[in-house]
């Protein structure tokens, strides 16, 4: 006879995973395509048509037109280039500087590490937008200013992870072994430490990208980004704000697009995160 001494394993309910991730991925692919070749999907974002001002969404103008008679859909599609460029570049700056500084902190002696770590703490202590505003004030408004500002403001995410990973790796037996084989310090760091600490960074970067895009839109909304008439998403929100009561589509629809991009990035990022965790466990 058979007896079960413990409860059987609960039957795992399989919900159709992947649908959300697939939708998010498809949306992101479209966004990237729009950023790369906006002309393929939409017309001239700057073509004003005084005869069709503030028209509601229709078959001719999917997202309606703005106060100068420009097609909102065209502007949103072309805006993808500005927003994604700023987001991706800022994330690269943040991840690059973060890895470098985190590695430096993790490898250096007590005092240098303390100094760097307190620096990360200070950066992380401020709200992202506030800090980015400060850096824009120094770097000046515009695309470059935003990239630098957001990059520096979000660098602690990456630096802290890399620093703590570095502490683990530098204690590892294989680092001792590399010493036994006479590896020089730079060689040791490049061959053993760096590759073993940056594992989580790509996943963090995908999630961080959403944050960076949101911050970029926020700063542009405040007038710190690409200047009009450039079709930047945050700037469009800002321009449309004055007509919200009579033409909601000029600001709401670009806002929906920003929201969807950020949510999609989070969905994809979390999925990657889960997969990555499974692999290291």
């Amino acid at each position: 006879m058979t007896i079960a001494l413990d409860r059987p394993l609960p039957v795992r309910i399989r919900r159709p995973r992947g649908v959300g991730v697939a939708l998010a991925g498809a949306f992101l692919a479209f966004a990237v395509a729009a950023a790369a070749l906006p002309g393929l999907f939409a017309g001239d974002p700057l073509a004003a048509d005084p005869r069709h001002v503030l028209e509601a969404p229709s078959a001719a103008h999917w997202f309606g037109t703005d106060q100068l008679g420009r097609d909102v859909f065209d502007r949103v599609v072309h805006g993808a280039r500005h927003s994604l460029t700023i987001g991706i570049a800022a994330t690269l700056v943040a991840a690059g500087l973060g890895v470098l500084l985190g590695l430096l902190a993790g490898l250096s002696h007590k005092y240098a590490d303390e100094a760097l770590s307190r620096g990360f703490d200070a950066l992380a202590a401020f709200p992202l937008l506030l800090l980015a505003l400060l850096f824009v004030a120094v770097a000046g408004p515009g695309t470059m200013g935003l990239i630098v500002a957001i990059g520096i403001a979000t660098l602690p995410h990456y630096a802290r992870v890399v620093r703590s990973q570095t502490f683990v790796v530098r204690q590892a037996g294989y680092v001792t072994q590399a010493v036994a084989f006479g590896d020089s310090r730079p060689r040791l760091v490049l061959r053993h430490v760096l590759p073993n600490v940056i594992g989580p960074i790509p996943v963090l970067a995908v999630i961080g990208l959403g944050e960076a895009i949101l911050a970029a839109a926020g700063l542009s909304f405040l007038g710190m980004g690409p200047q009009p008439p450039s079709p930047e998403w945050g700037a469009m929100l800002s321009e449309g704000r004055g007509y919200l009561s009579i033409a909601w589509w000029t600001s709401i629809l670009p806002g929906v697009v920003v929201t969807l991009v950020v949510i999609s990035l989070t969905v994809v990022g979390r999925r990657l995160h889960r997969r990555f965790e499974g692999r290291t466990a």
Binding site: A172, G173, Y174, T176, Q177, V179, A180, F181
Partner: peptide
């Protein structure tokens, strides 16, 4: 260095 080698208790972490 190469003439002095080291084997530890936990070989997994040594790779």
């Amino acid at each position: 260095r190469r003439r002095l080698q080291f084997i530890s208790q936990d070989p997994l972490s040594a790779f």
